[in-house]
């Protein structure tokens, strides 16, 4: 059996993670805004955006649940090498969940925080096909409103599944509990935090 191939991460870790974080902060504070995110190269099944987000957010103090097609030996070895994050088997123990939309674990089993500490909740890193501000044929067209959005904003996501869409629309976790969603396309990022009201057009 061959050893998984280690691959270079950020060329300038300090600067690249800062730049990537500012894009993440922008999209999380203004839901539906699409920002470029491609400081790293692609890693096996992970897109440049996903690998950049992982290097920015994960370290030895965070736990990650990795599932479905994204879960390969190469990805595990590289994320372990670059971030030192612990990869967990139980999704309920994860700070971050990384998967494609259709391969997410049961969302109601994930940590949604407590009434006193709603920040102790899971962040979903979902790798999708494409993000767009206008509706395309394959994309799920979402209409977002809430904090961070002046009136409303359109977001077209290719690669959402019905289960995740239903979660976003119905928000079964009562606020302030909830899951925050980061959508990672090829080289772009958008986010939908728990405060955003989502309608499907």
């Amino acid at each position: 059996m061959s050893q998984p191939q280690l691959q270079a991460g950020f060329a300038n870790p300090v600067e690249d993670s800062q730049q990537a974080f500012r894009h993440l902060l922008k999209v999380m504070s203004e839901p539906g805004v699409i920002r470029p995110l491609a400081a790293a190269t692609a890693l096996d099944t992970l897109t440049p955006a996903t690998f950049s987000a992982c290097q920015t957010l994960l370290d030895a103090t965070t736990t990650l649940w990795l599932g479905g097609a994204l879960d390969t030996e190469t990805v595990r070895a590289n994320l372990g090498f670059h971030s030192g994050c612990r990869i967990v088997v139980d999704p309920a123990a994860a700070d971050f969940v990384l998967a494609r939309a259709g391969e997410l674990p049961e969302l109601m089993t994930l940590r949604a925080g407590t009434a006193e500490y709603p920040d102790r909740s899971c962040t979903l890193l979902v790798q999708v096909e494409a993000l767009a501000t206008t509706a395309t044929e394959q994309a799920t067209a979402l209409r977002l409103s809430g904090p961070g959005i002046a009136t409303s904003r359109q977001l077209g996501v290719t690669g959402l599944d019905t289960r995740l869409t239903r979660y976003l629309v119905e928000r079964p976790h009562p606020f302030p509990l909830g899951l925050d969603l980061v959508l990672l396309a090829q080289d772009q990022v958008a986010a939908i935090p728990r405060t955003t009201r989502v309608e499907v057009n």
Binding site: P13, V14, E15, S17, Q18, F21, L24, L25, M28, S29, T56, L57, D59, A60, T61, T62, Y117, P118, D119, S121, T123, P147, G148, P176, D180, P193, R194, T195
Partner: peptide, 29 residues
């Protein structure tokens, strides 16, 4: 290091900031 703090501390603060903007007005330790 750039901006004084070490990278692991920055990462911890950055994760706290993302939760803070996701729950407006809530104090993240």
């Amino acid at each position: 290091n750039f901006a004084y703090l070490d990278e692991q501390t920055k990462g911890m603060i950055r994760r706290a900031l993302l939760k803070a903007v996701a729950i407006p007005g809530y104090q993240v330790p």
